[in-house]
Amino acid sequence: MTKNTLNTASEYHVASLVAYPIFTQLDDVKAAIVAVDGTEIHATSEEGKIVFTIEGNSYKDIGKKMDLIRVHKGIINLSPVYHQVLDESGDDKVAHNS
């Protein structure tokens, strides 16, 4: 096993996701999303799909926040759409997108 030498303190992560809630629990799901630090809802469709972003300082941080949302009883599915990593250390490293 190799040790990860990447300094995550200088990273900025942002991920966009779509949540598919049980429609009757839409308001509860939206409240659960915004209760997680670093989240912001950007749109909700007429069918109830919720588009939101999560900000964090590492892959692990983003993953933990996704897991907090994913286990809500009103969510049918949570689909990641985009994840970008920016290096804020001042190095000339290229940002990572996935």
Results as ranks from 00 to 15, higher is better:
Met1Pro: 13
Met1Glu: 12
Thr2Ser: 11
Thr2Leu: 12
Asn4His: 08
Asn4Ser: 10
Asn4Gly: 06
Asn4Asp: 14
Thr5Phe: 11
Thr5Ser: 12
Leu6Ser: 13
Asn7His: 11
Thr8Met: 08
Ala9His: 12
Ala9Trp: 06
Glu11Lys: 05
His13Pro: 01
Val14Arg: 06
Val14Leu: 08
Ser16Arg: 05
Ser16Gln: 05
Val18Ala: 07
Val18Asp: 04
Val18Thr: 14
Val18Ile: 14
Ala19Gly: 07
Ala19Ile: 05
Tyr20Glu: 10
Tyr20Cys: 04
Tyr20Met: 11
Tyr20Asp: 04
Pro21Val: 06
Ile22Cys: 08
Phe23Gly: 14
Thr24Cys: 08
Gln25Arg: 12
Gln25His: 13
Leu26Val: 05
Leu26Cys: 04
Asp28Leu: 15
Asp28Gly: 06
Asp28Ile: 03
Asp28Thr: 08
Val29Asp: 00
Lys30Thr: 01
Lys30Ala: 08
Ala31Pro: 00
Ala32Phe: 01
Ala32His: 02
Ile33Gly: 00
Ile33Gln: 02
Ile33Ser: 06
Ala35Arg: 02
Val36Ser: 03
Asp37Ser: 10
Gly38Leu: 00
Thr39Gln: 05
Glu40Thr: 08
Ile41His: 03
His42Asn: 14
His42Ser: 12
His42Tyr: 14
Ala43Arg: 10
Thr44Lys: 00
Ser45Ile: 05
Glu46Pro: 08
Glu46Gly: 14
Glu47Tyr: 01
Gly48Ala: 05
Gly48Val: 03
Lys49Glu: 11
Phe52Cys: 01
Thr53Leu: 06
Ile54Gln: 02
Ile54Leu: 12
Glu55Asn: 10
Glu55Met: 07
Gly56Met: 01
Gly56Phe: 01
Asn57Pro: 02
Asn57Gly: 11
Ser58Lys: 03
Lys60Phe: 15
Lys60Thr: 14
Asp61Lys: 02
Ile62Pro: 03
Ile62Ala: 01
Gly63Ser: 15
Lys64Met: 15
Lys64Tyr: 14
Asp67Phe: 03
Ile69Val: 07
Arg70Pro: 00
Arg70Trp: 03
Arg70His: 05
His72Asn: 10
Lys73Ser: 13
Lys73Gly: 09
Lys73Arg: 09
Ile75Val: 06
Ile75Trp: 02
Asn77Ser: 13
Asn77Thr: 09
Asn77Asp: 13
Leu78Ala: 04
Ser79His: 04
Ser79Ile: 07
Ser79Thr: 12
Ser79Val: 07
Ser79Asp: 09
Val81Trp: 02
Val81Ala: 08
His83Phe: 09
His83Ala: 00
Gln84Val: 15
Val85Met: 11
Asp87His: 11
Asp87Val: 06
Glu88Ile: 10
Glu88Met: 15
Ser89Phe: 03
Ser89Ala: 10
Gly90Glu: 05
Asp91Ala: 09
Asp91Trp: 07
Lys93Ala: 14
Lys93Glu: 11
Lys93Gln: 15
Lys93Leu: 15
Lys93Arg: 15
Val94His: 06
Val94Phe: 09
His96Cys: 08
Ser98Trp: 13
